[in-house]
């Protein structure tokens, strides 16, 4: 019994190794890309000819755009690539837990840390893009200059919390499932799987919303300034 799929190593050459997490992630990327490619290959223009898959994708994309806009970002299309991919990746990774042998890559702290690091890098990038380098740096001195260390610590700690939250939820989900399979192999694992699906979706939503809020907080100051 292993804690995460990191420990399943298929191939190793010194520092470089090919573990279960990376392979599963590649699989996910393949599924997402090929699915998107297949559905968007021939998009219908007429209302009557829209396929159900196309409407599914349209609903997802429109919903994401709407959620991003509701948090307070003025141009949702600009952030859709990053935040949308974040959500789709986590949600797909969590939803595929209904397959028996599958181990979600989000149950590995390495993956969640990578995602949180992506957010950690993306927030300053979007902030600088929105209001310039000095403008973004000023946000760290926001209430007063004394708050600078606390702002920096909060920046680090929230990244850490982001990664550990997702990891803890997914890891505990699969762990409970594994233990239950040993104790009561019938019925109860299914209930817990259902709970795991719900938790996985909620966690994907929370991760994306938190990333959106952080980006909005970094990009919003400019709007306040121009308003004043």
């Amino acid at each position: 019994m292993h804690l995460s799929s990191d420990e399943v190593i298929f191939w190793q050459a010194g520092f470089i190794k090919l573990n279960g997490t990376i392979v599963t992630t590649w699989l996910l990327m393949l599924i997402l890309t090929i699915g998107a490619k297949l559905i968007t290959r021939n998009l219908a223009q007429n209302n009557a000819e829209i396929s159900r898959w196309q409407s599914l994708l349209e609903v997802i994309v429109t919903l994401l755009k709407q959620q991003i806009a509701e948090v307070g970002l003025k141009q949702p299309q600009k952030y859709l690539g990053f935040l949308g991919t974040l959500f789709l990746f986590i949600a797909t990774a969590n939803l595929l837990t209904i397959f028996p042998i599958y181990e979600p890559p989000t149950g590995s702290l390495s993956t969640t840390l990578a995602l949180a690091l992506a957010v950690f890098i993306a927030v300053p990038l979007f902030g600088i893009q929105e209001q310039g380098l000095t403008g973004f740096l000023k946000t760290y001195l926001e209430p007063t200059a004394i708050m600078l260390p606390f702002n920096l610590i909060s920046e680090l700690s929230r990244t850490f919390a982001l990664s550990v939250r997702l990891f803890g939820n997914m890891m505990s989900g699969s762990m409970i499932l594994a233990i239950l399979l040993i104790i009561t192999p019938f019925v109860f694992p299914i209930v817990m799987t259902l709970l795991g699906l719900l938790t996985g979706m909620v966690q994907a939503y929370i991760f994306t919303i938190l990333a959106t809020v952080y980006i909005a907080a970094a990009a919003e100051i400019c709007d306040l300034k121009t308003d004043n």
Binding site: Q67, E70, V71, S157, R158, A161, V164, R165, G168, V202, Y205, I206, I209, L210, V213
Partner: peptide, 15 residues
Amino acid sequence: RTLFVGLAMIESTAI
């Protein structure tokens, strides 16, 4: 939305 964000913040301590 605000509830989820707030819950995430509170949950950080447990995390």
